[in-house]
Write a protein that binds this DNA or RNA. Structure first.
Lengths: 360, 360
DNA sequence: CTGAAAGCGCTTACAG
DNA sequence: CTGAAAGCGCTTACAG
């Protein structure tokens, strides 16, 4: 029963907005002059500009976003699009569908993107998971799009190209090896580094756990793995997880693989998402991590960093990735030169799951 | 090396857009007629409407979002705003700042909101974590805002009210008990249900773990807790976690509390975020869950559902919550009657962390 | 150095 | 039943 409870009137009448015309009339100037003063265009006396700025401030003038968007033909909006999977392959929590791969990384990325866009005067639109087709993107109405983890031949990418909308991807569309508008990571190199680390900690039979999907991050890590085991004369053990068990349910597959043949001494999961599944499978089979099984991840999370045991992982620095992608996209939108693919930094975080203290 | 690698020209010339004027000229009609045909306004022969629709389709006419926004004075955009905390209280992962409370629930909520908005013809803007002040919201340019978990006296809410922008909150601003534009949950009732459950499982000394913050969800659960322990003649044990340890670091506080006085036999954490911290503290003290300590959460997550042990939690059905909030907001924006506070459904999910099989 | 005019693509009264 | 006109708030040539 706070005394200041507020129930704003539905029909609360908003004060008519202050336009450039009001400022012009107030100063007996033309709207052209006011516009030029405020935007630094034209050739005006500095004193005039100053008068205009002051008056605009006084009158509470705020440029109309809609008028500007209309006039300039740009909405001042960029879209951020997370991976979509077919409805029935959606990992569900009771509360609703969860995006695939790494939820937390996406959240960090989306928020960093919103900040970077905002600082440049743009708003960030989150696309609905089901977006597809020209009509959808037309409704979203973005000047450009950051596409996270496209699949190979991603429909969103080709549709947006047809529409002439600039796109920057985070990680590649595997079907376009020469696509320059991408912020990616050295996934192969990361895989090598992680495998070197596992080997150093004594692993000799390292299984690769990968989703059966066409994300290039996955594909590139897998390629890195293949090169590496071949170079080290080790056996290639690839465990592919069907898309419908893209989350914790992977424990079913892992359990089956762990009991089927000769057991590996380390598991490298490209996806953070499989962490709980692998741990559960090991637990149920009485395998201690890292005692009986080393375990490392191709993506990081708070859970990986602070769970029991903490898991060695590659941190892709998602916030930085998204910032770079937004910056590249804004350059494309604004017609500036763009600096080819960017390979962002990643960091190997060594944690308890590989901390067995064995030196070879 | 792909033969179809595409490097769209920076200056790729977009085909001039098809306007309503083009359709009108094509049919020798006026733009008014075309407009009315397409939008169902006016009094036109059905045959005319049909001809227009067909021609529009043929010519590939798509209404211009910017023109529409300008003309109608609405951007066709709603904003979704997650809680902001002071910079230095941001839980950090190496990859960047993580939003407080439940990341996963927010991700589910944001995506559900994006879908609901999209279905109604709106785009969803994610606000940057640092948003504040009129200028920021002006840049975002939303027709309305969904505000998640406002703090008491939330600055965003008062700023938006001053701007005349419709707002719907998810959970209350505690300083506005009579605010009608809210989708909330029966947090007190949920607390009672959870406590009843713990008691049924044998708990007699139940500690409440709460963040030192003014989220009303927290406050209401705490109120529910107080009422309940008092009604049952049990001791009130409230453990408050300082805002700078809003995440896993809470294990420091929990460890200290667990070793300081007489030990509780159950912990009820209002925030999902404290799950790893509590588990770690128990682990390090050699307390098994649920053997030595029951544990339950006021919010759910995949990790709670599938970790070891799985944790009993209240599922707030975030997707549904967000859908309801978006629907209410759209009614406000479109000037329709709004149906007071909505208390959304929540579900108690009983899991291993309280599964001790003790009947009283 | 400043102003008048056109126009971005629509919708909405209003005429006919 | 259909059309002509005004106007939403700006910027951008272009004139003076």
């Amino acid at each position: 029963m706070g005394t200041d409870a507020q129930q704003p009137d539905e029909g609360a009448q908003r004060t008519r907005r202050v336009t450039i015309r009001d400022v012009a009339d107030y100063l007996d100037l033309s709207v052209s002059t006011v516009s030029a003063s405020l935007n630094g265009g034209g050739t005006l006396r500095e004193s005039t500009r100053e008068r205009v700025r002051k008056a605009a401030e006084e009158l509470g003038y705020r440029p109309s976003r809609t008028a500007l968007a209309f006039r300039l033909g740009r909405t001042g909006t960029i879209a951020y699009s997370l991976p979509t999977v077919e409805e029935d392959a959606h990992p569900m929590r009771d509360g609703g569908p969860v995006p695939v791969l790494d939820v937390e990384a996406y959240m960090i990325g989306a928020r960093a993107a919103a900040s970077a866009a905002f600082e440049a005067g743009y708003a960030l639109t989150l696309t609905p998971p089901s977006i597809h087709g020209e009509a959808g993107w037309n409704l979203i109405g973005a000047d450009g799009v950051v596409l996270c983890d496209p699949v190979s031949g991603d429909e969103r990418l080709s549709t947006l190209e047809r529409l002439g909308t600039p796109v920057v991807t985070i990680a590649r569309d595997a079907s376009r090896p020469d696509w320059p508008y991408v912020v990616t990571n050295d996934y192969r190199g990361n895989a090598h580094a992680l495998l070197d680390h596992l080997r150093e900690r004594g692993a000799r039979r390292i299984a690769l756990l990968v989703p059966d999907a066409s994300w290039s991050s996955t594909a590139e890590m897998q390629q890195g793995y293949r090169e590496w085991v071949s170079a080290h004369g080790l056996e290639e053990i690839v465990w592919t997880i069907p898309p419908e068990r893209v989350s914790h349910d992977a424990y079913i597959d892992v359990t089956q693989r762990l009991t089927a043949g000769p057991r590996p001494d380390a598991i490298f999961s490209t996806a953070e998402q499989y962490r709980p599944g692998v741990l559960r499978a090991c637990r149920e089979l009485g395998l201690s991590v890292p005692g009986d099984m080393l375990f490392a991840l191709g993506g990081d999370s708070q859970a990986a960093a602070h769970g029991d045991p903490s898991i060695t992982a590659i941190d892709l620095l998602s916030a930085r990735q998204s910032e770079l992608a937004v910056q590249m996209l804004l350059r494309r939108i604004e017609g500036q030169a763009v600096d080819g693919p960017i390979v962002a930094e990643s960091v190997l975080r060594v944690r308890a799951s590989t901390d067995i203290g064995v030196d070879e």
